[in-house]
Design a protein around this nucleic acid. Structure first.
Lengths: 221, 221, 221, 221
DNA sequence: GATGAATGAGGTTTCATTCAT
DNA sequence: GATGAATGAAACCTCATTCAT
């Protein structure tokens, strides 16, 4: 919870417009080229600041990357949070969740791509641990909490481990996000379904995924 | 279907011991460092051959990568195929599938890591399309076929799109593979469940995932 | 006419001393080793700058080469231009031309060698076209214009195609330049004349070439 | 005169078909790529022999190059020789010469390109001296001899140095050869004349060059 | 705070030549 | 005579980071 900061103090003092510009340009570069191939000098130039100033704001390329990643994550996190604290039943929440994710994926494709990038990170385990904590803890918390509440109310099956089911749920949603935004997953979607996800009938995809999840969470006798 | 070759002919003529050594060393390097950071001079040296010879075997770093990736994929593909053509019911197959994947993930962790790496590939769409076709087409085929057969027999729900359900199933299995092998996913597993996947009770994980899938595929009235 | 730039902006901002040094060192390396065998790391080192900075100035080895070439060409071009716009008769101009070229060849031998190098260029036709345009267009223009003026005045024969005669003239002058500077042509000069061009009586060479050209351009009845 | 051999004895024992094939393939590779960029392993493969055998025939890449060059030169040399020993007057010879060169340039473009390549050679002066001797001596001899004979007969001007005039003549002819075959010279021809040499009216070019030469060699009072 | 010139290690790829068979 | 596997030095180019101004 004690979210760390990955930028230097100077970056906090920068006016919002420039701050957002830097993060957006960074996100664009990282998401299109990948972490290793992204060029921090290019990011600085595109953002209209000097490379020297960039290093006044961020200690390393990696810190810039993580800050960009968090910037994008926060937006979705907020939307998910609003859904999960509502009074809806779990399955209603799931539907809203899926719809929100579809929408968000299209609007903020670059953030999803960055998230996809970090999912393949090869670094020190300590560093990864910190990042995962940063990115996943809030989301996992709202999932698990919602499921537990539903269990208590008897809305969903009783024989499940809510943590594992939360993870399975997230895996499905994340994979869907990737299908909407990342090249490999989009092509995989095409291989499985025969159609391009961008030309697919969103409602059908949502409907099917909802049936899948609904049944998985429900156990009728 | 007519799978392309990514190595030069000279590599086919190499004796098996050396061939396997090169692919294993390559897999080790790619899976631990990631594609960009992997160093083919290092791979050549560790495999005990000159860099010049390496380039007699593979035209580019990328070709070496894909050949390593395919080498690992083929092993699992074969195992999955054997399961799916059996006479078992779909849910029995699913169980075997999960168990096989758990086992394979532990035995061939490096190949899973390479697959994870390619899932975040940022390259030309043409190249990605070729790789996805290479890696996913056979697997998707056996999933979809098995599901369709089960539908015809009335073993599973009738209101599903088998292609989408196959994709959802694969997403769950792939995510599990990653949890067993890739740093980010392992840490994510820990954030969600509170335990390290390597110290987790495999049986419980399998059991829970099976319940999730079983219910998703079944629709009792 | 609107001559392209082959260096990056950063090179324009460099102080003149360094700029000239880089071009001179580059010219020396290219003219002595040839384009392919020239080593830009060596050029950078000899010019006292890092290789990284070299690439801040020039995008590629080729751009450095062309910039060096143009640097040398401009000097001679200027001298030729001054001669050709004078009021002298064509044959007087020719004499001045030959003398200037002899002098220039000795003073700027390395640039002639680079020009000789580019004359054997094997590259994409588009690239060659651009370079030829760059190097030859001004020179051809002043030759053709001078010849046409002389024709109008009746100073020279009327039955010639001025463009072709300009080319023939340039071929003779260029060959002479090469004889003064390039190994193959110098040795060829020796094979034909029995003497080394550097030990030859310049006045005799000039005198003979002038007679050759003079007669070629004149048609007495 | 004592022509050196640049191939090993083994190459002399090879049957003619293979010998010619090797030289033709080599010529093609050298003329299209240039000496440095040509790849001797590729030449061997295209000629259908092993690289090992190639080195049984030629000690170095350079020896192969020179052997190819001589192979092509011999053909033209023979044709020129036949012209120059004829009874024709010098100017008639010159016309035949130009026509032969035009024809030869089109039929054996690759050899001209190789000759063009060697004209920009950067090597040890000793080596270049040997090559020049090899290539130029016979040609210069027949030029000079023909001119001297014409002088004795009073067919041409008496105030010329026959050796220098022979060189000037050769320079003009060589430049024409290059215009017909080498990219830089062809583009230069276009810049000077406005037309592509391949679409030019050959007769006009020949006619003009002949007038140029004719006048240069003649001195009417 | 802001600049951007400068660094230089490091990585992929090429290819002439050798030599064991 | 013939093969072709094997070598490894060398070259172009990139880019994260520093630091003097």
């Amino acid at each position: 919870m004690l979210q760390k900061k990955y930028n230097k103090d100077a970056f906090d003092r920068v006016d919002e417009e420039r701050r957002n510009l830097i993060l957006e340009v960074g996100t664009e570069e990282f998401s299109s080229k990948g972490y290793e191939s992204a060029n921090i000098n290019v990011i600085a130039k595109k953002a209209g600041i000097s490379i020297g100033l960039m290093y006044k704001y961020f200690a390393t390329k990696e810190d810039l990357f993580i800050t960009c990643l968090k910037y994008g994550t926060d937006i979705l996190e907020k939307a998910l949070y609003d859904i999960m604290i509502s009074d809806d039943k779990l399955l209603k929440k799931a539907e809203k969740l899926i719809r929100t994710i579809c929408l968000h994926s299209k609007q903020h494709a670059n953030y999803i791509k960055m998230y996809n990038e970090i999912c393949a990170e090869k670094g020190s385990i300590e560093r990864i641990r910190v990042i995962v904590e940063e990115i996943e803890s809030k989301r996992s918390f709202i999932y698990v909490t919602s499921i537990c509440q539903a269990m208590e109310k008897g809305d969903v099956r009783a024989d499940m481990n809510p943590k594992l089911f939360a993870l399975f749920l997230d895996n499905l949603l994340t994979s869907l996000q990737f299908a909407y935004t990342c090249d490999y997953y989009r092509e995989k979607f095409r291989v499985y379904t025969g159609i391009d996800v961008n030309e697919a009938d969103d409602e059908q995809v949502i409907d099917q995924l909802l049936r899948f999840i609904e049944s998985a969470f429900t156990l009728e006798k």
